[in-house]
Design a protein around this nucleic acid. Structure first.
Length: 690
DNA sequence: GTAGGGTTAG
């Protein structure tokens, strides 16, 4: 075995092999007669996915009547075998629900009829397809009651079903109890561990398996490459990579794609590209993997040009490709490319794909084009929790808090189970829109009604909500009442609220907590500095400045850029390097004059009170303002301006841009690394997000 | 002879 792994010390020792050839875990041996095991099922509660299989009273009546009629009929003698062949046919064409309905007739009318291996196999397949624990329990009970000894194949299928349903405890129990195991049993179990995020355990089992089966087929390595990706240790991934080369499966398409993904997620885009270059045949999945890799590392333009290269090379574009491209467009704020991707989605026949459509909802939501987002969402035939979350977050981030709450309520009514992201979206929507009462109701309902434990982010939302209302003591009390150690997000929310409401004492406390946790983070000091400045506490402000100096923390010059005719133009604060400098400055001055008539008052609060007058003058020419002026001069009046900033928008700029959007009638989208700020006709709906 | 594998969305 070529792989040497250093796993976490707290792990229990490796599996041992008992004299009977079965594995023992933690000293306990789980060998028992397979036919007797009914316990894995007895503890299983019915999955919600089983609802459709639950016979309705009327349906039972109908079935019983049907069976009674059949019992009185001569057909009865030949009927079960016909039923079986019908079940197998239905499973072959993926009509699992109907297959299980026929099985119900068997259960009701033919208990005692041993249907035979192939039908059991088909029935387990149907349950796997339906992810139905209750179904497999029924099939298995029928099997055991009729004296059928499940063979290895059927056992593997049941194991797979547990794994696919995420019931890893049951899967493990079954796996331990299996008298016979082959490579498929091992890799099903290991794959399940990888899917459930238990990567080190997956490696432990893999090492055990390797002693028993030296299974060097490509699909085994693919699973272990995924495990390396999950572990995040590139060295482990490299060792698996070298194993694939030694075994001669390094060129396998599946292996290559898994490797591209692994190298990219472990931080090496160069290695990922190297694997891609060496692929003998560049498949769609290969292209998708490399495009996604570039996108993951923030190389959006490169990713997009790879997509065009893929298209030009005649590779098949699939729904994965389009989903990735839409995501890239969201990051580039490129409406034009996104529209093309939307069209390609429909043209290639993936108009109903849930992931691609969710990516579109997300794209339009990020852009603040909520009508478009809603339109795509409404047309989706299938929606999952992520689709709902994207829409709710969209409404929330663009100031439509009531719509966000409404969608949340509709989601719950329709039986979709909200997760922690849903609550983050709806709570921050309540916070931004000042829906305090509703926010609290939802916060309390999280663990009570939806069994979702509030995390630090949810607390931070509530602290922000209280902070906006000026209820700073309550916000502080909430921090102290949290059942975990308060995080930086929570203190930062309190500090921001203190700055907003000029509460020096609490602000100082929050800032000190933050200094302890993030001593090198500049913005924590700046917020306190501004709080001191606005309260006229010059000595304290000077103290903060001294701390900054001592720590060598400096403000980086702000930088923003705008794309005009596919060409990006970059501006620094007070930048004079551009050839149109004169016009740009004139435009900024004009706009400033214009918006001052609409109530804009320049914020004279400066971060560095000791800079001279000339510098002060330059500092007011924020990079965003210059970029917007450039955009106003060089783009047609109907196009929205997309400004990207390398920093967080400051309060002064924020109100200025809002007013510029109003007086010029232009739509302005300002985005930073993680989120969009959207301004349209003077209404702004953005807030800080973590 | 069957089953276990890669890429996408908040």
């Amino acid at each position: 075995m070529e792989i040497a792994l250093s796993l976490h010390k707290s792990q229990t020792p490796l599996l041992g092999t008992s004299s009977r050839g079965s594995l023992s875990f933690s000293g306990r041996c789980f060998v028992s007669k397979v036919a007797n095991w009914s316990h894995p099922f007895s503890r299983i509660c019915c999955s919600s996915m089983d609802q459709t299989l639950k016979p309705k009273p009327k349906k039972v009546e109908y079935m019983e009547r049907l069976v009674t009629v059949l019992n009185h009929n001569q057909i009865m003698k030949t009927f079960p075998s016909r039923l079986c062949s019908q079940i197998e046919k239905l499973v072959l064409c993926n009509r699992y629900r109907e297959a299980m309905e026929l099985f119900e007739i068997l259960e009701l009318g033919h208990d005692g009829f041993d249907v035979g291996g192939s039908t059991y196999d088909a029935l387990v397949s149907a349950c796997v397809g339906l992810r139905s624990i209750r179904g497999v329990k029924r099939v298995f009970n029928y099997m055991i009651n009729n004296g059928f000894e499940p063979d290895l194949y059927v056992m593997n299928r049941v194991l797979l079903m547990y794994v696919k349903c995420g019931l890893m405890m049951d899967a493990r129990k079954l796996f331990d109890e299996m008298l016979e195991r082959d490579a498929a049993s091992w890799m099903t179990m290991i794959g399940g561990l990888v899917d459930s995020g238990n990567f080190s355990e997956a490696f432990r089992l893999f090492l055990c398996m390797w002693e028993e089966f030296n299974d060097g087929r490509s699909r085994t390595f693919v699973t272990m490459i995924r495990a390396s990706t999950g572990l995040g240790f590139i060295q482990v991934g490299r060792q698996i990579h070298s194993c694939t080369l030694k075994r001669g499966v390094g060129d396998d398409n599946f292996v290559s794609c898994a490797l591209i993904d692994m190298y990219s997620k472990c931080g090496s885009i160069a290695d990922a590209h190297c694997v891609f270059d060496q692929m003998p045949e560049k498949t769609t999945v290969g292209w998708n993997s490399i495009i996604a890799s570039y996108a993951l590392h923030g190389y959006s333009e490169e990713a997009l040009s790879l997509y065009y290269e893929m298209r030009d090379n005649g590779a098949t574009i699939d729904h994965f490709t389009i989903s990735i491209v839409i995501r890239i467009c969201a990051r580039l704020a490129s409406l034009e490319h996104a529209k093309q991707a939307h069209a390609a989605l429909v043209r290639h026949g993936y108009g109903t794909d849930i992931v691609a459509n969710t990516a579109l909802v997300d794209f339009y939501s990020k852009w603040g084009r909520m009508e478009d987002a809603r339109h795509v969402f409404n047309r989706m035939r299938n929606k999952n929790v992520i689709s709902w979350n994207a829409l709710i977050a969209g409404y929330g981030n663009h100031g439509q808090g009531e719509e966000a709450v409404e969608m949340f309520e509709q989601m719950v009514r329709e039986g979709m189970i909200p997760n922690h992201v849903t609550f983050l979206a709806v709570l921050s929507a309540c916070s931004y829109s000042g829906l305090s009462g509703r926010g609290w109701e939802i916060f309390y309902s999280m663990s009570r009604d939806h069994k979702v434990k509030p995390r630090a982010m949810h607390y931070a939302c509530m602290i922000e909500l209280l902070g906006r209302e000026g209820l700073l003591d309550k916000a502080y009390a909430l921090i102290r009442s949290a059942p975990f150690k308060p995080t930086t997000n929570m203190w930062a929310a309190l500090l921001t609220a203190c700055r907003m409401h000029e509460n020096l004492e609490l602000g100082k406390l929050a800032a000190e907590k933050l200094y302890g946790m993030e001593p090198e983070k500049l913005c924590n000091y700046i917020v306190l500095l501004n709080l001191y400045n606005s309260s006229g506490k010059w000595n304290e402000a000077a103290g903060v400045l001294q701390t900054l100096k001592r720590k060598g923390l400096r403000m980086l010059p702000a930088c923003s850029w705008i794309e005009v005719k596919k060409q990006p133009y970059t501006f620094l604060c007070g930048d004079k390097s551009h050839s149109q400098t004169k016009e740009i400055y004139q435009k900024v001055d004009n706009i400033m004059f214009e918006i001052s008539r609409h109530g804009y008052v320049e914020d004279n609060e400066t971060l560095l009170p000791d800079v001279d007058e000339e510098e002060q003058r330059i500092l007011k020419y924020h990079s965003e303002k210059l970029a917007i002026a450039f955009g106003l001069i060089n783009t047609p009046h109907w196009t929205p301006l997309q400004i990207t900033q390398g920093h967080r928008v400051c309060g002064d700029c924020h109100s200025a841009i809002k007013l510029i959007a109003m007086v010029t009638g232009r739509e302005i989208v300002v985005r930073d690394a993680s989120r969009f700020h959207h301004f349209r006709n003077g209404s702004c709906s953005c807030g800080d997000y973590w």
